[in-house]
Amino acid sequence: MRRWLNKWPLFRQLTGSDRLGLGSAVQSGRSRQMRARTENAEKVAKSICPYCAVGCGQRIFVSNGTITQIEGDSDSPISRGRLCPKGSASKQLVTSPTRERWVRYRRPYATDWEYLPLDTAMDMIADRVIETRERTWQKTDEAGAPVQRTEGIASLGGAALDNEENYLMKKLYTALGAVQIENQARI
């Protein structure tokens, strides 16, 4: 009978040393064997939440090359270890089995789409940007004044982008020599 009663947390709490029920009295056999996802992390990387412009700090726990947990960074002066529901779920952004890892691409004049690996698509984009920049580069204008620019590359940012994304896009396109850099919010 006592063995059967010992399975009840309330009985263990009343008869054992954990009277407040804050420790072993309320643990089941299963919960005693559970370990935190952060306990065996080989590496902890600091990052910033990707969802909005607040810039909440995150700690990313990695084991065997796989992200095991993402939680708020208590060292962050912005979020002080807290994350909103979207930030708390950001692990799903990178580890979800439904995450797209391929790019759908339709070649010029083709009628069907094909799947390309993301790395291949990124290389194709980089090659096209470099080729366009080289082909349309202007050292001087019509009057002979130095301009060091390209008019073959332009950017139109969207209002859905946050300040940090717009800032980085502006830096990238300026470094490429583009002069047509605009944002939907200004138009």
Score class of each variant (00 low, 15 high):
residue 3 R to Q: 06
residue 4 W to A: 08
residue 4 W to C: 01
residue 6 N to M: 10
residue 7 K to I: 02
residue 8 W to V: 12
residue 11 F to Q: 01
residue 15 T to S: 02
residue 15 T to A: 04
residue 17 S to R: 09
residue 18 D to H: 01
residue 19 R to F: 09
residue 21 G to P: 00
residue 21 G to K: 02
residue 22 L to V: 00
residue 23 G to C: 06
residue 26 V to A: 08
residue 27 Q to V: 04
residue 29 G to L: 09
residue 30 R to Y: 13
residue 30 R to M: 14
residue 34 M to R: 11
residue 37 R to H: 15
residue 38 T to N: 05
residue 38 T to V: 12
residue 38 T to D: 10
residue 40 N to A: 07
residue 41 A to L: 03
residue 41 A to E: 14
residue 41 A to H: 03
residue 42 E to D: 12
residue 50 P to D: 15
residue 50 P to E: 15
residue 50 P to I: 10
residue 51 Y to G: 05
residue 51 Y to V: 12
residue 52 C to L: 03
residue 52 C to I: 00
residue 53 A to H: 06
residue 53 A to D: 01
residue 53 A to E: 13
residue 53 A to C: 06
residue 55 G to W: 05
residue 58 Q to N: 03
residue 59 R to D: 02
residue 59 R to F: 04
residue 60 I to E: 04
residue 61 F to N: 08
residue 61 F to R: 01
residue 62 V to I: 11
residue 67 I to N: 03
residue 67 I to W: 00
residue 71 E to K: 15
residue 71 E to L: 04
residue 74 S to H: 10
residue 74 S to N: 01
residue 78 I to W: 02
residue 79 S to V: 06
residue 81 G to L: 09
residue 81 G to T: 04
residue 81 G to H: 00
residue 83 L to I: 03
residue 83 L to R: 00
residue 83 L to V: 05
residue 83 L to H: 11
residue 83 L to K: 00
residue 86 K to A: 11
residue 88 S to W: 11
residue 88 S to R: 13
residue 89 A to Y: 09
residue 89 A to T: 09
residue 93 L to Q: 08
residue 94 V to T: 11
residue 96 S to Y: 10
residue 96 S to C: 10
residue 99 R to Y: 15
residue 99 R to F: 05
residue 99 R to A: 15
residue 100 E to P: 00
residue 101 R to P: 14
residue 102 W to F: 12
residue 106 R to P: 05
residue 107 R to W: 06
residue 108 P to V: 08
residue 109 Y to G: 13
residue 109 Y to Q: 15
residue 109 Y to V: 09
residue 110 A to G: 08
residue 110 A to E: 06
residue 112 D to H: 15
residue 112 D to N: 10
residue 114 E to C: 06
residue 116 L to M: 05
residue 116 L to P: 09
residue 117 P to I: 11
residue 119 D to C: 07
residue 119 D to P: 02
residue 121 A to S: 09
residue 121 A to F: 07
residue 122 M to D: 14
residue 123 D to K: 06
residue 123 D to T: 00
residue 124 M to Y: 05
residue 128 R to Q: 15
residue 131 E to K: 09
residue 132 T to K: 08
residue 132 T to F: 03
residue 132 T to D: 12
residue 133 R to F: 04
residue 134 E to H: 07
residue 140 T to Y: 08
residue 140 T to H: 10
residue 143 A to S: 13
residue 151 E to A: 07
residue 152 G to Q: 10
residue 154 A to R: 08
residue 155 S to T: 01
residue 156 L to F: 11
residue 157 G to P: 06
residue 158 G to P: 01
residue 159 A to W: 09
residue 160 A to E: 11
residue 160 A to L: 12
residue 162 D to G: 07
residue 163 N to P: 02
residue 166 N to D: 09
residue 169 M to R: 06
residue 169 M to E: 12
residue 171 K to W: 08
residue 171 K to A: 09
residue 175 A to K: 02
residue 176 L to Y: 02
residue 177 G to C: 01
residue 177 G to N: 01
residue 178 A to I: 03
residue 180 Q to W: 09
residue 181 I to H: 12
residue 187 I to H: 10
